[in-house]
Design a protein around this nucleic acid. Structure first.
Lengths: 196, 196
DNA sequence: CTCTCTTGCAAGTGACTGCTAACATGTCGG
DNA sequence: CCGACATGTTAGCAGTCACTTGCAAGAGAG
């Protein structure tokens, strides 16, 4: 019913799509559901995106922007590097509840290995996050706050692997898992490893 | 054409299903594809499994058996605990190429959060692997080979998170990732952390 | 006020989905 | 060698999929 200018509708569509794709997966989400969630009909969806896949890729790219912007804001307030490293761990998007919802979209894309274009978008996204982490870790090291001898590239991958794994298992509610809210134990363990 | 006894056909169906589900995802794989891959028609598939979902759950359970059996074989040959810990890391199913194929099925299930029964099967599987790891880590500790002070439960989760994350990112072929075959750098880093 | 351009919708497209009923055929114990 | 039962197939069900065609209607510019 309510008419929206094209740009707003597009953003709203991506918002709703994020939730649906996170919940049902890429293949499991229908264009009818996507349209309905945005309060429109399917032809409108196809006016904004060439295809369901096109929408999904746009969502992946936007998610990358959001995550990096979020990190930069957090790190901006962090003051000194010891605190910053903790934020790098805790701010890893899949560790917070907020981030996890967003990030399930990425994981859905990660498992969609059959589609070349989607794979390319995910690869872009992962490489981007990794580069950002490496830069931050290098800075922390030259300022003397990080004593780990390991390769910053490797540390960054380690962080990403952990965050991905944690974020995948946490929502299952396996009894012994995440006894602590937001994976605090793991953060402590890693902090000890990385900052000596 | 070739007639097979029910038990063999069932196993063969699960074999083919593992590859298809890993490649196309649960929702993305059709029963027609599953049947064709096994060289039969759909009604035969439904004689062995009540539904597509039922087949998927059977596959998850069988995968759990396979993984734990594989671990036990490897650990049996390991001799002493220092070597054993390295195997626990290296034998983590998503780190080897062979295991990764199998394990993508689990990840597919992990993202299929909308289906209660599938979630339950995945939860069962994850809890089982975790319990196995915890037992081994405890043994390694009492025999004095593992000096890490951290909670064995936590270490086991750490291993699983890492393996999951690594196994998800590795097949993407992101330039800096897995420069070393089979994640050797990460193993070294972890070995240092866990065995002092 | 009206012209025009954008935003919206109802109704359908053929192809494909998971799944089934009804019938055929190979194989093995007696 | 034959009857019986397990293993197989053909043809098709109703429902859903991603995507389209053709037409209505709100709103800003002149």
């Amino acid at each position: 019913m309510s008419r929206l200018p094209a740009a707003k509708r597009r953003e709203q569509l991506l918002d709703k799509a994020a939730k649906l794709f996170a919940k049902r997966g890429y293949a499991g989400t229908t264009t009818a559901q996507l349209a309905k969630a945005a309060g429109i009909t399917e032809p409108i969806l196809y006016r904004h995106f060439d295809s369901k896949r096109d929408l999904f890729i746009a969502l992946i790219d936007r998610t990358g922007d959001d995550v990096i912007r979020g990190w930069e804001e957090q790190l901006g307030e962090a003051g000194s590097s010891a605190h910053e490293i903790r934020l790098l761990l805790g701010g890893n998007p899949m560790i917070s509840d907020r981030g996890r919802g967003i990030y399930r979209v990425i994981v859905q894309g990660l498992t969609e290995i059959d589609d070349r274009e989607i794979r390319k978008a995910i690869k872009r996204h992962i490489a981007r996050l990794h580069a950002f982490l490496v830069k931050r870790i290098r800075e922390a090291r030259t300022s003397g706050q990080l004593v780990a001898r390991a390769d910053p590239e490797l540390i960054a991958w380690l962080l990403m692997h952990l965050a991905l794994g944690y974020g995948l298992i946490a929502p299952l509610g396996v009894p012994g898992h995440s006894k602590d809210a937001s994976g605090d134990h793991i953060l402590r363990l890693l902090s000890r490893l990385l900052t000596g």
